[in-house]
Design a protein around this nucleic acid. Structure first.
Length: 933
RNA sequence: GGGCGGAUAGCUCAGCGGAAGAGCAUUGCCCUUACAAGGCAGUGGUCGCAGGUUCGAACCCUGCUCCGCCUACCA
């Protein structure tokens, strides 16, 4: 093995594309449904085809890839289903804007077919981009199965599901309240409406009671809707109005008479305690009208303009225009009361930004209650578990308050509703195949519904539609249910809940056993990353690096709002003065894994990634060192010797690192089993850097380095080579799911047993090998480390030059302990650059500095002339102070009879031991202080 | 209005009933032949506030104060 094999610094740009290609060519990402192995399946939440890979995707997919790679190495039949989502409304907004900008046309000018043609062309282009980005990240998705929510298989599934639900009476068409986006001209779901309080007014309107001089005052934030009022509601228990219930008021400006009704939804304490009821334009009012038998009168049309039966004077006005006019007219006629400033909760379409208008319209709905009941039961019984568990409540809350789901959208890009209307009769034909005749009268004058289905309808079927449903495919029987779903908590309602409902309904089984909710990635200030805000960090920029200019330039396209853009650019100039250095996919992956704790947010900054890039470089250099010293190493021979329990003369350090390796394997396995990704990453970080590099490699150097005089190496060199190569090889395996590229690169170069496969990806994940656990070695090594650290501390405190091998006296009263230290004297002397004189005890050494190792040992370093007596005294006094505090606390505790009585035996013993130890320490420190004079 | 979180070292966060931890930052010393993207050693915290339960509380309970998020029918 040559030393030139590894460069001094790790360069991911050279390594990553090479291994990606090799893995893809070898087909390692593909899973065979017919494999006898136990299946482990994850379906990737399909990213929107409009988008590019953002940090949220990078996080979720990194975690999924860790699980998939880990299980694959754990001999499971691991399958990770890729795909993209057609995101109908998002695409519409984009394409329509483009059409308007370039050609000043609307989609209607272009026509449905032409529009769809363009949508497909555009999808092909941008859908591939995200796939390429996923590959760059190293995600081991099963690309042979790649799917799209609007491909033929999915379309078949969608039709099947629609028809079945319709036949079962779970899909119906009816006139109900929906949210209308007047800009996009379509229904949007509750979940696609952003609600926020905006500044507005509260107007009091005075409605005269018919047949009396009385006036009933109602308050409203939307006076224009009074044209559609069909009643006034009061609380049934409200003494002020009880006598008026059943009477009528005359609705100003219209001359209509409308009844006063009683309904408990009215809050008597708010405003006047009386509410105008506009059933056609308000959700609550609609529900009230259903209870009270009030009619609905629509006065706002689909364009957001006033329409008949509103009086002619208002017809054609926009809602805003009409509002002004109505207020003026009411005031002129004396019907206006007080006007106050008021914060108005207002819904805006997430996509178009337009104020969403509640409307009464004929639409398609899914009846959700019968679907929700099993979905609730499945989570209650634990068939599906949420991790972290707290999200269960969110799911349950939504499920138990679920409303019927409006699934029709007045868009073109999506699955067209498979319903045909008859020109001759009223029958609606719902069919799996395109209908040419009416299922009612047999007529041929049939026309398909123009609308498409909500994107989430097809997404709800995704865990099984991707596997070929409704066909009973091999894939379906093997990989359904999935093992885990990994996604963000923000789409529990949108997506997770719907998949559970659909999965249970059509497959009779939950779609996944565990739902793991990731943290949400925010910027370093804790703000959610969003393109419009311009505070996104593009994962690919982190991987490949980007100059400051590139980052600034990007905001020109991505952040349309000028104010936001300027803020974003200012922020970028502040935080990325030198741009973003290239970090590599591995560094980003490790960062995301390490930061994904059970908290709800990850504050990501490039600094964090840099820290973990350094870790990768550390691993690289440790490997570089190993390769420089593994000449002549016989991996097969060593490993079979070790496994066969043949005589291998292991040093303390060898036994220790082998034992620690087993502990780490246990830790990592437990962490991954319970989705504690950060614990797994940190355990490995700690092990590699602070155990393998800081201690094992340093100690092994004594054996590995060839003698300078050219004499033959000691026999111990072979053992050190064997242990180092073995530990490194196992460590690479353990790290591989998190940082696949660098581990594969090193692994390929490492001498290793011949029976291993061609790629690290398909090796077996290490588990604890009990025969290599060695508690004694761990205890003894801890002693060696403590002594070495004690000496180093003295050296550091008194600036003893590194070149000077100081003689120290080490006093250890306990014979057995002293014997152990004597046995490993070379280790301590080497790593602390010291020569030890071991004693059971000893008297004062003038001009020396002293350090205690617990109550076990005293290190006395003669430093005549070098030490500052006052400083040394201060240092010791501080330690005595600490000991005093500890002793006081422990004495108090042990003096408490109730503690002695009620605390468990071992706790009491432990505390007694601690007290003795502290007292002993204190005495030694006092001696030391006295000796300084 | 309801619900759910969070408040622990300068920063970001682990720990969730028996000796306060990590990473980053910071301070010394060191270019020691794997790594200066490094090594060695250190500094730094009455665990938001006030009560309570307990032999014992950062951890459990109650209240309060801030800060987030979700959700909602205050017109």
């Amino acid at each position: 093995m040559t030393t030139a094999a590894l460069s001094k610094q790790y360069d991911p740009s050279d390594v990553e594309p090479r291994h990606l290609r090799a893995w893809l060519d070898a087909g390692y990402f593909h899973a065979d449904a017919a494999s006898p192995k136990v299946p482990y399946a994850i379906t990737l939440p399909p990213p929107n085809v409009t988008g590019s890979l953002h940090m949220g995707h990078a996080l979720g997919s990194t975690l999924q890839d860790i699980l998939i790679r880990w299980r694959r190495m754990g001999s499971w039949n691991a399958m990770w289903m890729p795909g993209t989502d057609h995101a109908s409304i998002a695409v519409h907004v984009l394409l329509e804007k483009d059409l308007k900008n370039r050609e000043q046309k609307s989609r209607h000018d272009l026509g449905r077919d032409k529009f769809l043609e363009r949508a497909w062309v555009w999808k092909e282009r941008s859908g591939n981009r995200i796939v390429e980005q996923e590959k760059v990240m190293g995600f081991s998705l099963d690309w042979e199965r790649d799917r799209f929510t609007m491909d033929e298989v999915s379309n078949k599934a969608v039709r099947e599901a629609f028809v079945r639900l319709y036949d079962e009476g779970l899909i119906y068409r009816a006139k109900r309240m929906i949210n209308w986006d007047p800009a996009s001209q379509t229904v949007v779901s509750d979940l696609e409406v952003d609600r926020a309080e905006e500044k507005g007014h509260l107007w009091e309107l005075r409605y005269p009671v018919v047949g009396s001089d009385a006036v009933i005052v109602v308050a409203t934030t939307r006076p224009e809707t009074m044209l559609g009022d069909t009643g006034v509601a009061v609380h049934p228990d409200d003494e002020r109005y009880r006598h008026l219930v059943g009477q009528e008021v005359e609705l100003p400006l219209t001359g209509r008479r409308i009844p006063i009704v009683a309904d408990t939804f009215v809050d008597p304490a708010f405003g006047s305690g009386a509410v105008k009821v506009t059933p056609a334009h308000d959700f609550n009012d609609y529900e009230c009208s259903q209870r009270c038998g009030l009619p609905a009168i629509q006065v706002i049309d689909a364009n957001g303009k006033m329409c008949p039966p509103a009086p002619d004077a208002y017809v054609g006005l926009t809602v805003e225009q009409c509002r002004k006019q109505i207020v003026a007219d009411l005031e002129a006629a004396g019907f206006l009361g007080l006007v106050k400033d008021h914060a108005v909760p207002r819904g805006r379409s997430q996509r178009s930004g337009a104020v969403v208008e509640p409307m009464l319209m004929e639409q398609w709905f899914v009846k959700t209650e019968p679907l929700a009941a099993p979905a609730i039961a499945a989570v209650e019984s634990g068939k599906t578990k949420f991790v972290p568990e707290l999200w269960t409540k969110t799911y349950m809350h939504w499920m138990t308050n679920i409303k019927d789901w409006c699934i029709s959208r007045q868009l073109w890009w999506g699955h067209r509703i498979p319903a045909w209307y008859c020109g001759a009769c009223a029958h609606i034909t719902v069919s799996r195949t395109d209908a040419t005749t009416c299922g009612g009268c047999g007529g041929t004058d049939v026309r398909q519904d123009d609308d498409i289905l909500d994107t989430w309808f097809s997404s709800g079927l995704w865990p099984f539609s991707t596997l070929g449903w409704p066909d009973k495919s091999r894939d379906l029987t093997t990989f359904y249910p999935n093992s885990v779903l990994v996604t963000g908590p923000d789409i529990i309602f949108f997506w997770v809940a719907r998949m559970v409902m659909m999965g249970l309904h059509f497959m009779g089984k939950v779609p996944f056993r565990t739902v793991y909710l990731t943290s949400i990635v925010t910027d370093e200030n804790g703000d959610k990353m969003s393109k419009t805000k311009g505070n996104v960090i593009d994962p690919l920029d982190v991987v490949h690096g980007a100059t400051l200019e590139q980052l600034i330039e990007r905001t020109e396209n991505d952040v349309p709002d000028l104010k936001n853009r300027e803020a974003a650019q200012k922020n970028i100039r502040k935080n990325f003065t030198k741009g973003v250095p290239p970090m590599g996919a591995d560094a980003l992956r490790f960062t995301l894994a390490a930061l994904n704790t059970s908290g709800r947010y990850i504050r990501l900054s490039v600094d964090r990634v840099e820290g973990y890039r350094n870790f990768i470089n550390k691993l690289w250099n440790a490997s570089r060192f190993a390769l420089m010293n593994l000449d002549g190493h016989d991996a097969d021979g060593f490993e079979s010797q070790l496994a066969g329990k043949q005589q291998v003369s292991l040093t303390l350090a060898d036994r220790w690192i082998l034992s620690r390796l087993q502990r780490v394997a246990t830790e990592v396995e437990a962490a991954l089993e319970s989705f504690r990704f950060s614990d797994a990453a940190n355990a490995l970080y700690q092990f590699v850097w602070h155990e393998l590099c800081d201690w094992y490699i340093e100690l092994a150097k004594a054996h590995l380095h060839l003698p300078h005089d050219g004499s033959p190496p000691s026999p111990q060199r072979k053992v050190a080579q064997g242990v180092l190569a073995l530990v490194l090889e196992r460590t690479l395996r353990m790290l591989h799911p998190i940082i696949p590229f660098v581990t594969e690169e090193i692994w390929q170069k490492l001498p290793k047993p011949a029976h291993l496969p061609a790629s690290l990806m398909i090796t077996v994940y290490p588990r604890c090998e009990d025969q290599l656990l060695d508690a004694e070695a761990e205890r003894e090594m801890a002693l060696v480390q403590e002594l070495a650290v004690g000496v180093r501390m003295l050296r550091s405190t008194y600036n003893v030059p590194p070149s000077w091998s100081v003689p120290v006296e080490v006093r250890i009263a306990d014979d057995a302990t002293r014997a152990i230290v004597d046995r490993y004297r070379a280790l301590i002397e080497n790593s602390a650059r010291v020569t030890m004189n071991l004693q059971a005890s000893g008297g004062p050494v003038p001009g020396s500095a002293k350090e205690l190792v617990r109550d076990i040992a005293e290190i006395v370093m003669p430093l005549a002339g070098l030490i500052d007596v006052a400083a040394e005294k201060a240092r010791i006094a501080k330690d005595i102070g600490k000991a005093d505090k500890e002793i006081a606390a422990l004495e108090k505790k042990l003096a408490n009879p109730q503690f002695l009585e009620r605390a468990p035996e071992e706790v009491v013993t432990e505390q007694r031991g601690r007290l003795a130890e502290e007292q002993h320490r204190k005495h030694r420190l006092e001696d030391a202080l006295a000796q300084l004079g």
